[in-house]
Structures are given as C-alpha cells and as structure tokens.
Amino acid sequence: MKTYKILNVCGSGIATSTLISSKVKDAMKERGISVETTECNIREVSTMIPGFHPDVIIGTSSLESVDTKGIKTYSGMPILYGNKLIAKKTFDEIEAYLKSME
C-alpha cells in the first residue's frame, strides 16, 4: 500500500500544524490510508516541497501567497476547530483526492 505524504503548514511550524498532523494521521488511519506527515512554517513551504514531495498540503495559515507548485491544498481550519461533522467533510475530500491519485 502506498504511503501518502501530507505537509502541514502554519505560521510557526510548531503549534497548529502539529495539531493538524495529529488529527489527520488518526483520521486517515481510521480510513485505512497510510500517511506520513511533516510540518513547516509558511515561509518554508516552497523549500520543503522539493525534498518532501507532499501529495497534499494543509494550511492553518492562508496558502494564497505561497507557490505550492500546483499541489492540492486544503484549509486546516475545519479540521482544527470544527466539530467532528465539519472536520469529517474535509477528511472525506482528502480521502477521495488521495484515492483518485492511485
């Protein structure tokens, strides 16, 4: 089974991105998808991409100003603060997207 890579981005690369990593790993595991996560701050995104090769980028900060090299991005806010139903919607989208890559 393929392990997908998810890059989680926030302002510092410490706080909310780490929270997202923890949540997304659990959610994808429940769905039988193996993911590897790492975190960075918003200024590091373009230098992280060539090394880490993420399949998906999730940002709690806005990724609008960042060159994400065409990689699919999601807002981390529904995952971070939404109740389970709202978070589920984003997880469903990510799951569908990852499965469509196979």
């Binding site: 926030c10 302002g11 918003i42 940002g59 806005s62 100003s65 960042v66 603060y81």
Partner: peptide
C-alpha cells in the same frame, strides 16, 4: 464563533 489561533492570519502577505 469558533476561536482560532492567530496563525490563521499569518499567511497574509502584507502582514509578512
């Protein structure tokens, strides 16, 4: 209203 971390605003280019 859900309380969010200030990180939500950090991606703004003018702020940077």
């Amino acid at each position: 209203d859900i309380a969010i971390d200030c990180a939500a605003l950090a991606g703004d280019t003018e702020l940077l």
